[in-house]
């Protein structure tokens, strides 16, 4: 645990002293601010909805959520593999898990800093006399941090798999986008494929088509269980802190961190 904190502190120091991280953060904050102003204007001053847009209901929100973590994590393991620092860390008296966990906490903390800017909008608006939906606002912030953590974990996994940071970012981004788009893709596929297959096979009996439709249904439900968007909107956006949703995000994060630790270990014999 102590090793984790030591690593985390050093990573945060690195982020805090790297111009790249600050530039990224300022661009994101600027973008978010401009968009929020636009939402308010477009919605004729509906504060609650503007905040919902800023946290979870807009494409820009999800784009930031997907793009930022890989950019922060891409160098974390890949660069150290290249510079030989992995050898230093893995021969230091800390566990491999502490190395990954420390990096994870550092990147997530930095991103949390960014998402905490949105409740500030709420504060400002409250100061101006509006009454934002605090439950939804804080829930959405927590959700954004948890989702960032999940994408940080996939980012670290990608970073541990290669020694080229850009490739790590690309891999993580591709993975995150695929995951987010999975429900959409299955729906499109199933909508087209199932009806086509049903038409072909139900020439005589209706039986084949029915079982195919059932299989499609089952697949859709399966994809639905890992649908990040749905999980996010179901709980956090309505201001409801549902432990099952929290566990959903945390357990996937844990899985990817575990895989990243394993992958880091294999660096020894690769």
């Amino acid at each position: 645990m102590r090793g984790t904190l030591v690593i985390m502190r050093r990573e945060l120091f690195s982020l805090a002293t790297s111009p790249f991280a600050w530039i990224l953060l300022s661009v994101a904050l600027f973008l978010n601010g401009v968009l929020f102003t636009a939402y308010i204007q477009l919605l004729d001053g509906d504060v609650t909805w503007a905040l919902r847009f800023a946290l979870g209901e807009s494409l820009a929100f999800w784009a930031l959520l997907v793009f930022l973590p890989p950019l922060f994590t891409m160098r974390m393991v890949a660069e150290e593999a290249r510079s030989g620092l992995v050898e230093y860390l893995l021969t230091s008296p800390i566990s491999d898990a502490a190395v990954i966990l420390g990096k994870f906490l550092a990147a997530t903390t930095f991103l949390a800093l960014f998402w905490c800017s949105v409740p500030l909008y709420g504060l400002v608006l409250a100061g101006l006399g509006a009454s934002p939906d605090w439950g939804a606002l804080l829930g959405g912030t927590l959700g954004a941090i948890l989702t960032s953590g999940l994408f940080v974990s996939t980012g670290l996994l990608a970073s541990a798999s290669t020694s080229t940071p850009v490739l790590a970012a690309f891999l993580a981004l591709a993975f995150n986008l695929t995951w987010l788009a999975l429900p959409l893709v299955t729906e499109l596929l199933l909508g087209g494929a199932v009806s086509w297959l049903a038409r072909v096979f139900s020439g005589g009996e209706g039986l084949g088509g029915a079982s195919l439709a059932a299989a499609g249904d089952w697949l859709q439900r399966l994809v639905g269980t890992i649908d990040i968007l749905a999980h996010f909107q179901k709980s956090f956006l309505v201001g409801l802190l549902d432990t099952t949703e929290v566990v959903f995000f945390l357990s996937w994060t844990g899985l990817f961190l575990f895989l990243a630790v394993r992958l880091l270990e294999t660096r020894r014999w690769r």
């Binding site: 050093r10 120091f13 690195s14 002293t17 790297s18 150290e80 510079s83 030989g84 620092l85 992995v86 050898e87 230093y88 021969t91 230091s92 008296p93």
Partner: peptide, 16 residues
């Protein structure tokens, strides 16, 4: 690892 002081050939250090 606690008992060893190891200096790898590449001298890995955090440059920042």
């Amino acid at each position: 690892r606690r008992r060893i002081g190891y200096l790898p050939e590449s001298v890995p250090l955090y440059g920042e």
